[in-house]
């Protein structure tokens, strides 16, 4: 018995010997490839559809108010037909910056500790625990912030509590696992020989981290921070619950603030007509900011690759 066609045995067209079914296989392969290709186009088609639908719905209002007046207008008053999103842009930027200022140092320090200082097994376990933070739904973050942080701020300062500060603290905690996780991976990717090189010269662990490991992992850490910015800009529910949502440009950490996302979520439920189109216009602005951030990520990633190539000593021994 043999599993092959008899006769001139490996022509495709030869009749098979009963149990061997290889006829038409090549044709099947082509069909499979087509189908897989179509599936693979889903993501990019979805992206195109999202862009098309959001823009189609949002552009009319941008045209009516004028793109510049829409983006730089400081008054958002649907009842008066005034749609300027600058307060929301300022709000998004403010909470994002404040969140990063608080979150990044802790997140990167946490990554350094887990990757470089903690005993390896403990590091892996603790990292998994930190990543659990990213599994907590954003409504839960918002709610815990609403019931603990907001009253706390109110008590300390006498202000209402719903504020840039409250929103950015919640966001800082939310983005920490993202930044920690990406930074951790890039720290782990730094070759052990770098650290050995410093150790061989009598350097301490901290010197190795500060002078060799952190600089080598820099592009990965930056990528993690950019990812964090994206999460901050895009986060909706948690911010909505603690930010106060007044559509005015925040003047201090204690000012109530409305972000692009929370503005949409807040009013979408009841908006109609021009008001609804203006909300989609807001979405267009948000979308453009995220797209710009994406381009920045790509730029950093390509730069990182170049740096990585140059930085790595060819002998892989860090000159020890």
């Amino acid at each position: 018995m043999s599993y092959r066609k008899e006769g001139s045995p490996f022509w495709r067209t030869t009749v098979s010997s009963g149990r061997v079914r290889s006829q038409g296989r090549t044709a099947n392969e082509r069909v499979v490839e087509r189908v897989l290709f179509c599936c693979a186009l889903t993501a990019v088609s979805a992206l195109a559809l999202i862009t098309a639908f959001i823009f189609a719905e949002g552009m009319p209002e941008l045209g009516r108010t004028g793109p510049a007046r829409f983006v730089f207008g400081t008054t958002w008053s649907p009842s008066r037909g005034m749609f300027g999103v600058l307060p929301m842009i300022a709000g998004s930027v403010a909470v994002t910056l404040a969140a990063l200022l608080m979150g990044v140092p802790v997140a990167v320090a946490c990554a350094v500790f887990l990757a470089e200082m903690a005993p390896p097994r403990a590091g892996v376990l603790l990292k998994a625990l930190v990543e659990l933070l990213s599994a907590v739904p954003s409504v839960v973050y918002g709610f815990v912030g609403l019931t603990t942080l907001v009253p706390l701020i109110r008590e300390w300062t006498g202000a209402p509590g719903f504020s840039v500060l409250a929103a950015s603290v919640v966001l800082a905690i939310m983005v920490m696992p993202t930044i920690t996780s990406v930074s951790y991976e890039s720290l782990k990717a730094v070759p052990g020989s770098y650290r050995d090189g410093v150790a061989a010269l009598g350097g301490t662990r901290w010197q190795a981290i500060r002078m060799v490991v952190l600089p080598a992992a820099r592009s990965g850490i930056v990528a993690g921070i950019i990812l964090g910015i994206g999460r901050c800009l895009g986060e909706t529910m948690a911010v909505l619950m603690v930010a106060g949502n007044a559509p005015v440009i925040p003047t201090s950490l204690l000012s109530p603030v409305r972000t692009l996302t929370s503005g949409i979520a807040l009013e979408m439920g009841y908006a109609s007509g021009r008001h609804r189109e203006a909300l989609f216009g807001t979405a267009v602005v948000l979308f453009a900011m995220i797209a710009a951030l994406n381009l920045l990520t790509r730029y950093v990633a390509s730069k990182g690759a170049v740096f990585g190539g140059r930085r790595r000593p060819r002998d892989g021994s860090a000159g020890a």
């Binding site: 599993y3 092959r4 066609k5 001139s8 045995p9 490996f10 022509w11 495709r12 067209t13 290889s22 296989r25 090549t26």
Partner: peptide, 19 residues
């Protein structure tokens, strides 16, 4: 292989590889 050019476009590689 066995008198047949293995790079002949009519060859089914899966059948070839069984041989």
């Amino acid at each position: 292989l066995d008198g047949v050019d293995v790079y002949d476009p009519r060859v089914d590689v899966t059948v070839l590889r069984r041989r």
